[in-house]
Amino acid sequence: MDILVVLEDSQGSLHRLSKEAIVGAQELGGKVVALAIGKHCEQIASECLSFDLENVITVNHELVSTYNADGYSNIVKTIIEANSPKIIVTGHTYQTRDFMPRVSAALDIPFIPDIISFSEGSFVKQVLNAKLNATASFSTDQVILSFQSAAFTEENITPGSCSAKAFDVNLDSSIVRSKTEDPFQEDAGDVDLESAELLVSVGRGIEKEENIPMAFELAKVLGAEVSASRPVVDSGWIDSFRQVGSSGSNVAPKLYFSLGISGAIQHVVGMKGAKAILAINKDKDAPIFEIADYAVVGNVLEIVPKLTEALKNQ
């Protein structure tokens, strides 16, 4: 085994980022083995049987039937120790953030996270809030890599055939120290961002809570809903059910009109499906402009009130 891809269970099916990670692993080249853990491991493995992989290892054990960091890190560690893959690959998900560093520390293997592309041993990741990119490399025999959402396209998985085989692990119950409860969702609010046609989205560039009505007024003349970036929600200026991004809603409106949003990846994953992106930002190098169709370089606080007035006259 050259490369081990650690798969993730997304409510009984293979996580989208795991599929993308398989593409990344195939592009790295070599013998790729995938690992599925937990009570759905066989279902997940069965989704991989038509991919060009060496095989899929499945591990089910009552201590890891559902995700927990103690159990998962132990299993991944055991599989790495037994097979010595040179590269361990995974999607950069919340679950990866939660347990993969444990594997890294336990085995002293560096973990280069959140990679967007690579070439010849050098891995590109975003740094400094996505304003710059960096190439990172490692000097060890083994490395752990996680790929950012959309670093690869799942349609590019090389097809083939492989088989699944179960791996029996001996886990001592003392390994799992945490008690994990079932996941739950909170009150979704009365706004349906995901089916909104037009969104006016507010970022920290709105500067203060007193300026929030400005965005609602613009939204009103446009017939749009209002959404927001995380810091605006964290500050309590706008309700949390209006948050767009990896920890909020995934939106795909006809127009996403962003006001003072920098364009961090955790925000962008939630809105890059918009048909058109119109962004106002005072910083001409703001990352949001890289994905915008229209980049208005200017001050939100000056432009928005005048724009609202102008639209009222239309």
Binding site: P110, F111, S139
Partner: peptide
């Protein structure tokens, strides 16, 4: 074990219309 070797300004491939003008024109 791991190093940052180079940093650079991201390049975009998307066609973006940049509007950098005074407020009324914008």
């Amino acid at each position: 074990a791991q190093t940052i070797d180079k940093i650079f300004i991201p390049q975009t491939s998307k066609q973006t219309e940049v509007i950098e003008a005074d407020v009324d024109v914008a």
